[in-house]
Design a protein around this nucleic acid. Structure first.
Lengths: 145, 145
DNA sequence: TGCTCATATGCGTATATTAGCATATATTTA
DNA sequence: TAAATATATGCTAATATACGCATATGAGCA
């Protein structure tokens, strides 16, 4: 398969396309579990989507602790550059809802790291919870020292 | 499926992509049998590809006699416009060979109509053959009058 | 009217893709 | 060291896609 058909194929699936559009509008990148939440998909399928997008040359990964931060690549050739640019003309209402979700999701990070099992948090005492996680770690660290 | 994924899906196949690229560089359009030859595909599969591209909003058809002339649409929205433009940055060597073939093939038209079973022509007496077809028709027409 | 030509399409099968599950890996925390 | 966490992957069944063939359609031509 040529690199061109590979390109189009990677984007021919609703969820893969959305994953890429999320990353296209993002500088720092997102964690797998954040993306999974934003597109309402399981972590393992999301992981597979990300792998396909990476192999097709759209995105890159950066391992941080036990998490992996994904972000769009800097397009090197004309084709990719022009395609990325053209994709920015996809109507906002196609992806807006997913962006909203992931923005919320990013705020749930504890010390810049993403928490996977977000269902155990409840929306009301979320900030308290984040603080507790942080405090708990700090105390345990001090106790060890 | 959204119109976006439909777009990418239509181009995710080598031959469909080539069919569209042929038409993207062409004003007047090509006949089905010409395209079939240019991509080395059967007429029925080529016809199916053209149908998919048409349903995805890339190309339009125009019936002329018993032939059908296909050509790229004038892109109406920003997405399509930018995408078509981006696709022009696909390297020439990807499609050059096919363009050569179709250019040759177009020259074989008799009175602007495409001849499907081109194998019955041989390259040496081709022009003679075209002239014969034209003369034969002219004579029969005169005889009827 | 029947025949040929250019194109289209329905159908059955071959092939590819996908999703879900179980499990693996790697890293951090207890 | 063991347990938990975030992510990845191999396997299998379900589903989708593509191809070849036979045949249909519809417009000229004999």
């Amino acid at each position: 398969m040529s690199k061109y058909t590979e390109f189009f194929k990677a984007l021919s699936d609703e969820k893969r396309l959305k994953v890429f559009l999320l990353l296209l509008n993002e500088q720092k990148g997102f964690y797998v579990c954040e993306i999974a939440d934003a597109i309402s998909e399981t972590h393992y399928n999301t992981s597979k989507y990300l792998k396909e997008l990476r192999l097709a040359g759209f995105i890159k990964e950066k391992k941080l602790g036990r998490g992996v931060l994904y972000s769009a690549v800097e397009p090197e050739d004309d084709f990719l550059k022009n395609m990325f640019e053209a994709m920015r003309s996809i109507r906002h209402d196609y992806i807006d809802e997913n962006i909203k979700i992931i923005r919320k999701r990013v705020k749930l990070r504890v010390d810049d790291k993403c928490i996977m099992n977000i269902s155990k948090f409840n929306q009301n005492n979320l900030k308290k919870n984040q603080q507790e996680v942080r405090n708990g770690r700090k105390i345990r660290k001090m106790e060890r020292a």
